[in-house]
Design a protein around this nucleic acid. Structure first.
Lengths: 168, 168
DNA sequence: CCGTGTTTGATATAGTGGATAACAATTATC
DNA sequence: GATAATTGTTATCCACTATATCAAACACGG
């Protein structure tokens, strides 16, 4: 028999046997590392993770931050307009706004023209938090990306991603 | 009075008034279009969307496809190893595998060395489906990305995303 | 050996994000 | 003025993610 010379004892741990035979190989990603969608998703998760870390002191998620940014850049808009711009469905936008409003970061004001709609506006506190958040994002989050990719790389990456997001 | 000459009638629709006064402006993305995380997420959603369309005939999600790819490149691995590699938690990997196994695309085989673990392997049908899926991905999905970005652009994009995914 | 601790697959469960249907209030349209 | 459309909202469902826990099997120190 082939194993008569050195029968593998039941007591020999698989871990040790694996190390000896170099069996503990890392799982091969194979063609996965060339699949753009896969790498794109992994990168996205990492970036969001870092965003959360950097803005943790202000307790803002990427979605909440994007809402504050939009409200600042677009005063006088209603929920539907802001939600649509962010690709958020109106029903799901309600609780998002609730949480921001309960923290006094923004306010819903009944429109005089159309009393169905709520005009959204940042509060003073909302503007202050947004300003601090922007500083953290620029000085910590985006700065780290710049360090990793270089300014040129970052711009090139942004340009290609924008192209995909808009034209794909 | 400023509006005495042409008082806006209640019957004049807001939409018409908006068009007349050019009030129906698209919501401004503002600094959002420069936020890498935001654009990254948007792009990722688009790419996954297209992936689903391209592989629709085979009814495979990105996650399922990635599992089949990994099993093909790593025969003899167990659930924990495959799940960890994909960043999927073991509990959540169970149902994912269930669905693949119920479609006879892969099989769990009790390991002889360690009867706790399940060796995962593609079935014949699994190999066939994977082969067809790969062709669809290359010929339709990745081809479209190549068309949009050019081969050089695609490679540069992949390289930067990989860097983010691994080193960020 | 044997008892203790660890690992594997699995279940249950909870949280989150995204999607649809339906509703009251309001506005638009004819 | 009757009918249709829009706005914010609620309820609900599905997919994905995360944690705790469990039985079975294995590892390891005494």
């Amino acid at each position: 028999m082939a194993d008569s010379a050195k029968p593998v004892s039941k007591r020999e741990s698989r871990k040790e046997a694996a190390v000896a035979a170099d069996e503990t190989q890392a799982v091969q990603l194979g063609e996965l590392s060339d699949l753009l969608g896969y790498v794109l998703k992994r990168a996205q998760l990492k970036v969001f993770e870092d965003f959360l870390r950097c803005v943790a002191p202000l307790q803002l998620t990427p979605a909440q931050f994007s809402v504050l940014l939009l409200l600042d850049a677009n005063p006088g808009r209603n929920q539907t307009e802001i939600a649509n711009t962010l690709g958020i469905l109106r029903p799901n936008f309600v609780s998002l706004l609730d949480s921001l409003e309960s923290r006094d970061l923004c306010a819903r004001v009944r429109s005089a023209n159309d009393r169905r709609s709520h005009i959204l506006m940042l509060t003073e506190k909302g503007r202050a938090v947004l300003a601090r958040a922007k500083k953290l994002v620029v000085s910590k989050h985006e700065a780290r990306l710049n360090e990793l990719l270089g300014p040129d790389g970052r711009d090139a990456l942004l340009a290609m991603l924008t192209k995909i997001a808009e034209e794909f």
